[in-house]
Design a protein around this nucleic acid. Sequence first.
DNA 1: GTCTATAACGCGATAGAC
DNA 2: GTCTATCGCGTTATAGAC
Lengths: 213, 213
Amino acid sequence: MIEPILTRRQRQRRQHEEVVEEILAIARRMMQAEGVAALNFNAIARQLGMQPPSLYTYFASKEAIYDELFRRGYLTFGQRMNQRPAATGSPVEQLRSAFLAYMEFGYENRDLFELMFQRPVPGFTPSAESMAVSLGQLAEAQRQLGAALAQAGVTLPVSLEEAGDLVIAMMYGVTAMHLANNPELPVGEGRFGRLADHAVDLFVTAWQLERVE
Amino acid sequence: MIEPILTRRQRQRRQHEEVVEEILAIARRMMQAEGVAALNFNAIARQLGMQPPSLYTYFASKEAIYDELFRRGYLTFGQRMNQRPAATGSPVEQLRSAFLAYMEFGYENRDLFELMFQRPVPGFTPSAESMAVSLGQLAEAQRQLGAALAQAGVTLPVSLEEAGDLVIAMMYGVTAMHLANNPELPVGEGRFGRLADHAVDLFVTAWQLERVE
DNA sequence: GTCTATAACGCGATAGAC
DNA sequence: GTCTATCGCGTTATAGAC
């Protein structure tokens, strides 16, 4: 008898994971089309050719789908923000690349952006694990911003933490306004999308980040 | 026969309006407690001692309740933003008072703030009339910010419209972060609530708004 | 004409038995 | 995996009461 490459268990498990990925992909398409809160458990099942109760084999509840998307969203966000190539550039370059990375994450993942930063789903509270992931990634982003500013060697009128938070608030504000006003336009275009560079300049000028270089 | 102070029609109408106000008040309490999207039509009826279908005498749909709150929200917001006493002060004072007015509106009306600026309700689209109100108030706020900056007589690195939009994005960003992180703390306290003045200073410094006075 | 109630429909999330 | 069933929601139809 020929040895199977995968045991029956392994094959089942792989199929299971494939279905999970499919569910998440369908869920994201729905959220992008109709809004985060419009996610429809039954409709996901129908699109998979399943009966709604069968979906419970893959996710314990609708909230569990949100939770997994929330968790993965923060992981992707963290990778984008914290593994930028420009982590070696000048403070100004770092600020600019952080700003762009943030806005582009929002533009490319409107659904996750809303889910992660706006909590539009009544009753949805991230699990402890997802919450830990989220807090960790945010803290790291804030720390990197602070480090970039510290590297500038200037004396800021605020603490490093406050400076980082000001940048975060501005990134969020510009991105959210852009997505609300011109969701179809890429970063760099549209009433607010165009403001990214000006927003960075604001910090650079106010904090004199490129005094000498 | 004694003339009634109010005709039957007038009395009915007045009662009708009182119930409408009560419905809106209950709706706001619900939204504040459970999130904007958690508004529950049936539960409103129950709190009024009515059967759910009876509520349709007062509002044509659940969406109509959202719409009225949205419209009123923008009217209140406009009054707060556009009728500040400091409309006569220096540009710096005006910027600071606009920032505070914005943040305080958000803090005192968390529910309306979300409904107006974040659209957390799937399927809810403001009626044409409410939309007009909203756009009008926003344009006026943006115009006033631009006017205050023009009054400063400085040469900005951006157009007046862009400058106003940058301020709007920052006001929104700081307020939303504050409400997400420390909803219970008033403006001026908490991780982001404390940043209001620093945010204003950023614009003042970068744009040299108080060169001489 | 204005308010309210009862009954009923369609749909979504979900639990349980198979 | 399915089928059946329950519950709550927004909503409509309809009819009686003021």
